[in-house]
C-alpha cells in the first residue's frame, strides 16, 4: 500500500487538483449554510465559484478539453464580478431598510 501511495503523492496530477477543489467546495458550502451574516454567505459563494474554476482549469490542462476550459473559467470570473457588485448594492439597500445584515432577522416575507 505504501509503495503505491508514495509515487502517487509525489506527482501532482488531475486528481490532486480535483481534491483541493472538493475541499474548497465543502468549506464554501459550510460558510453558506452555517454563517448568518449576508457578507459571509457571499464570501462562501465566491469560494464555491473558485472551486468550480479550479476544476475547469485542471480539466483544460489534463484532458482534451484544452483551452475551452480556460475560456469557460474566464466567463465564470466575469459573472462572479457582476454578481458581487449587484449583491453588495442589494446588501447596502437591505442594511438601510432593516438596519441589520443578519439573515434570520430579515423575515418580513415569512408567512
Amino acid at each position: 500500500m505504501e509503495l503505491m501511495i508514495t509515487p502517487w503523492l509525489a506527482e501532482p496530477g488531475l486528481v490532486h487538483f480535483l481534491i483541493v477543489s472538493a475541499l474548497l467546495l465543502s468549506l464554501g458550502l459550510m460558510a453558506v449554510l452555517s454563517r448568518r451574516n449576508v457578507i459571509m454567505v457571499l464570501m462562501g459563494v465566491e469560494l464555491i465559484l473558485n472551486s468550480a474554476n479550479i476544476n475547469l482549469i485542471a480539466f483544460s490542462r489534463y484532458t482534451s478539453l484544452s483551452l475551452e476550459g480556460q475560456m469557460i473559467a474566464l466567463f465564470v470570473i466575469i459573472i462572479a464580478a457582476a454578481e458581487a457588485a449587484v449583491a453588495l448594492a442589494i446588501v447596502l439597500n437591505m442594511y438601510s431598510r432593516f438596519n441589520t445584515v443578519h439573515l434570520d432577522e430579515i423575515d418580513s416575507l415569512k408567512g
Partner: peptide, 29 residues
C-alpha cells in the same frame, strides 16, 4: 496548471476587485 492569463485575471479581479468590494460592504454595514 499553465493558465497564466487566468491567474493574472484572478489576481486582478478577485484579489484586487471583489475582495475590496466585500471589505467595503463589511465596513459600511
Amino acid at each position: 496548471l499553465y493558465a497564466d492569463f487566468i491567474a493574472a485575471t484572478q489576481l486582478l479581479v478577485y484579489v484586487g476587485g471583489i475582495l475590496i468590494l466585500i471589505l467595503f460592504g463589511l465596513m459600511l454595514t
